[in-house]
Amino acid sequence: MSLVSIRDVRKSFGTNEVLKGVSLDIAKGDVVAIIGRSGSGKSTLLRCINGLETYQSGSIVADGIEVAGAATNLRELRRHVGMVFQQFNLFPHLTAAENVMLAPTVVNKVSKAEARATAAEVLAKVGLSEKMDAYPSELSGGQQQRVAIARSLAMRPKVLLCDEITSALDPELVNEVLRVVEQLAREGMTLILVTHEMRFARDVGTKLVFMHHGKVHEEGVPKEVFAAPRTPELQQFVGQVG
């Protein structure tokens, strides 16, 4: 059974239809790289999965919960579906550790001491043990993004959604973030990444999804798809970015 199941999802902003019937199945342990031109609907699709965007028709079931159901408890869904953003979105008034501890203490009612232990563990995992008490403004972009990843991990998500998480970083900081994501992939975390890092998508991804004009235009095993793109659109896209 798939962990995330997307069936014929359609979404419009006003008269502009950005998702034109997208279907996708994601199994536990999959590392799905979604690529495509800007405006192809890939970020919108990702944001629909945890309910940050609504959709007009179709269905998304994540971890057994229908995202847009009338009685859906989005809070319950989001406890198991983490998200990391392009702009990090750390809470600037809290230290790295406090950023990580917030959701476990507030949402899961975990004790401060236990949350701090979890924070130490996940911050160590992203290589920032010594930055626990630093404020976001004292950290580099790469470090901030790693704290953001740790913040999501502290909730022990079953799926982690990554929305162009290296796009706002200086080139020399990209790799430290990708290494963390690669390690998560190796540990079996289910990841759905919207990304422009083609090499990363090919080497780490278990599944590649090429979106074009609001549809899944091509999908398959990354190495095969990159080696022999079937559609002219993907050939052209790979030629431009690869």
């Binding site: 319950e76 809470f91 999501s152």
Partner: peptide, 21 residues
């Protein structure tokens, strides 16, 4: 807006978002 989205994604309720973030 990113502060709202990040705290929403962490499953905080509206009141909790206001209070803590």
């Amino acid at each position: 807006k990113g502060q709202w989205e990040a705290s929403s994604s962490l499953a905080l309720s509206y009141i909790e978002q206001m209070r803590y973030v």
